[in-house]
Structures are given as structure tokens and as C-alpha cells.
Amino acid sequence: MAQSFKEALNSGKFVVTSEIGPPKGTNIENMRHHIDILKDKVDAINVTDHQSSVMRFPSIGGCLEIKEHGGEPILQMTCRDRNQLALQAELLLAYTRGIRNVLCLTGDAVPVGDHKEAKGVFELDSVQLLRAIRQMESGKDMGGNDLDGSVEFCAGAIVTPEANPIEPQLIKFEKKIEAGAEFIQTQAIYDLDNFAKFMDYARQYPVKILAGIVLLVSARMAKYMNENVPGIFVPQHLIDEMAEAPKGEALNKGIEIAGRMIAELKKYSICDGVHIMAIGREEVVPDILAAAGIDNHNK
């Protein structure tokens, strides 16, 4: 990889990130395959941290694989499963292995996942985790003790531009930036007018914003997300477009829509980049980029 994610963010280019989900088990072949597909196509690859509170191979394990394959990882770190000691220890490990990017998340609730009786930790929240990273960078741990060798991370967080009500989310967004977030990856956005309005507000803050692009694979998926996923709003015209795709062509239609949205975001410089979530269809991310007119992104 030519440059670090932080360098890419600061270069002024339209930044592209994507993500992979580690396996449930020790068979990491598919994850490696996804890393191979993505590592030269995007500026950085997020690795999810027991996404939806489903127990999996760890985020840091996926990040180490990305490093070994010459890619640039973003360590997704939730506050759901680790107390202060465990979070900090993992950051120390990550730093020594060349992982330089962390996405700080609160984490999904435990009961939505597959270990419904497990204890949710949540000793920290995402804002406090961002501050903890900045404190560790100053050479002190959260207990105020000196570190023998500190860390340095490009730290980021998320925001949900379509949340209802939006005001409480924006207060938290501002707290994340005050806490030192350098980049924001948004929840999936589909209505570019709404998103442009959010960006009019967000532009006043010194933070890079990557719009979340979730690949649509069917009209049913779009409707499901509208009904069940907080902060996702797929406009009816996109649902219709997916529904009207000829049989067997829905995935291609989804790729076309994602590509079209990315191209528009880039063309009008609406935001600083995109974060593409293909959710199990990572192999089509290069097709989405091609549809967006972004080829050989890192060449």
C-alpha cells in the first residue's frame, strides 16, 4: 500500500474504505480471500468487532491478517466486551504490530446477538474510548501511570445522519470530535439530499467524513432495513428500482446504485470519501468502485 490511511485522509483525495467480517470459527480462508480482493483497491479495510454481538474471530486478528498481506487495517473497537485494562492492552498490542487506525464504537447490545445471557461491559462509551486513546498517546494510561512506550493512532468514530431524532446524535457527534476523532464513518446513507444537508452542518468541524454505503442486494433487504435497522432510510424510488431489476439482476442493480451514489458524492465533493459495506459480498466491492468510475484507486 502506497500510503497510510492517515496520509490518505490528509491528501485531499476522495478516500475509500471497506470492511470485512471475521469468521465464526478458525477457518479464515474466506476472510483472507476478501483481504486479497480489497487490499489494493481501497485506502483501508475495517475489521468488525463481533458485529451485532455475534461471537467471532476477533477484530485484531483480522487486522493482523491485513497487515501480513500488505493492507491497511482499521481496528474496530467496541466497548461492549472489555474493561479499561483489556481495551488499553489491546491498543498496545495493535500499535506494536503496526495497526495505526482505530474506529471507536459503543457496540451493539449483547441481547441482540448470539450469546444472549453474556455480560455487557460498557465500562467506557465511544467518547471515553477516544479520550483514552489520546491519553495513551500522551504516554499515560487511564490510571495515570507512565507507559513504557506510548501509542499513536488515527482514531475515528461513527455518526447516524438519518437518526430520528437527530439532535441527541449530533451532540454526541460533537463530543466525539472534541474527544479527538479524526475521521467519521457514517451509518448507511441513501438519500443524498438529506446527506448533503447533514454535511452542511458537519463541514464546520475539523473531521473527515466518509459516507456509509451499504450494498443493496434486493428490494426486500431495503424494506427490511427501513423497518428494522435504526437510522437507515432507503427512499422508495431506490426500493422500486431494485424491485424492477430483471430476475437475477438485483445484485448488479445494487452495484449500479452504490456506484452511482459514490460517483455523485465524489463529483460534487459532498464529503471526504466513502466507506463501503458489502456485508458478505466483499468480492463485488471492486465492481462497485468500477461503477463509480474509481478504478485502480491506489495506483
Partner: peptide
């Protein structure tokens, strides 16, 4: 989640995830 600095992203229409 016992959060101290504002809502998580799981909230929807004023309800809990």
C-alpha cells in the same frame, strides 16, 4: 448500556435497540 455521554446509534424513533 448505561452510557454517560449521549445515545448510542441503536436508538430509533426514541426507542431502545
Amino acid at each position: 448500556k448505561g452510557l454517560l455521554n449521549g445515545p448510542c446509534g441503536g436508538t430509533n424513533n426514541g426507542k431502545c435497540e
